[in-house]
């Protein structure tokens, strides 16, 4: 039943809602409903439905294994680990990240009809966009399990740390995505920029190869790309032996993500009050 407690709301010029974080809690189910809508709608009127989630990473994995592993001959540099698993363990976080980022950055604009007509804490929109990608990610994990079973590759205790890296991936996407989403409301240029970042990112991140092929003196610089730490961490958690994380670089990545997230939240909160006016 409805709570009888009176809530008192104050709206003041230049202040935003006084109940923002309370509202975020009150609207918590909207996170779920927006994500659920996107998941359900995506596979309506399709023949194979949810199978699309599996087809995409499978084909990319095959392509990367052939291009990087065979043609470029990188397979020999990571002995002991079946190359498809190596690629796939890198591709899972990458796809979670790239999917999330492209969804988050367009989330506000594609929900503009709702944003301009109803109030709720706008932060729900980008966060629920990440939930959608997270669902895809969970499904794709089945493929990884299948691959590992095929190559009789048993994970170690480290696999228990995986949720931490998954969370880090989502936060990285959110951090960058908040900036892009908020900027995209005003400057649609950013909807062109995001695919560019992602297209570029897949080559400068260690998706199709192991980051161990980067010379040691460049490793710290390379870590400025937060995806390097994340993908390394993923491989470390899933594959165990034969992979190592550049921990100093990893700390640097995490620090960078925290800074990005804090500023992203700040910018988002600052501009969200005017979204309805400019969207």
């Amino acid at each position: 039943m409805k709570q009888l407690r009176r809530t008192s709301l104050v709206i003041e010029a230049g202040q935003g809602s006084s109940l923002y974080w309370q509202d975020l809690w009150r609207y918590r189910e909207l996170f779920y409903f927006l994500a659920w809508r996107d998941v359900v709608v995506r596979y309506k009127q399709t023949l194979v439905g949810i199978a699309w989630v599996l087809i995409r990473p499978l084909i990319t994995m095959v392509a990367f294994t052939i291009v990087f592993g065979k043609l470029a001959g990188l397979e020999s540099k990571s002995p002991g680990i079946p190359y498809p698993i190596l690629v796939f363990a890198g591709m899972l976080p990458w796809q979670l990240f790239s999917d999330s980022l492209s969804r988050v950055s367009t989330s506000l604009v594609s929900n503009s009809h709702v944003v301009s007509k109803v109030y709720f804490p706008r932060l729900i929109v980008p966060v629920s966009a990440i939930l959608v990608s997270f669902v895809d990610f969970l499904v794709s994990n089945i493929l990884l399990l299948a691959l590992m079973a095929w190559y009789s590759f048993a994970p170690s205790w480290r696999v228990l740390t995986l949720p931490f890296f998954v969370l880090l991936t989502c936060l990285t996407a959110l951090a960058l995505g908040l900036w892009l989403a908020a900027l995209n409301v005003k400057y649609r240029d950013f909807s062109h920029l995001t695919p560019l970042i992602l297209q570029f990112g897949v080559y400068i991140s260690p998706v199709g190869f192991s980051s161990s092929i980067v010379p040691d003196r460049w490793r710290l610089l390379y870590s400025l790309n937060p995806l390097v730490g994340i993908i390394d961490g993923f491989r470390w958690a899933v594959l165990g032996r034969g992979t190592q994380v550049h921990w100093l670089g990893f700390t640097l990545s995490v620090g960078l993500v925290i800074v990005l997230l804090a500023t992203g939240l700040w910018y988002f909160r600052k501009t969200e009050r005017t979204f309805a006016d400019v969207i």
Partner: peptide
């Protein structure tokens, strides 16, 4: 403004209770 979709440039509003618009 009352339903918090856009913010006012000046002034102050106080609302008691749950608002639906």
């Amino acid at each position: 403004i009352l339903s918090q979709i856009t913010e006012p440039t000046t002034g102050r509003i106080k609302v008691e209770g749950r608002v639906a618009s």
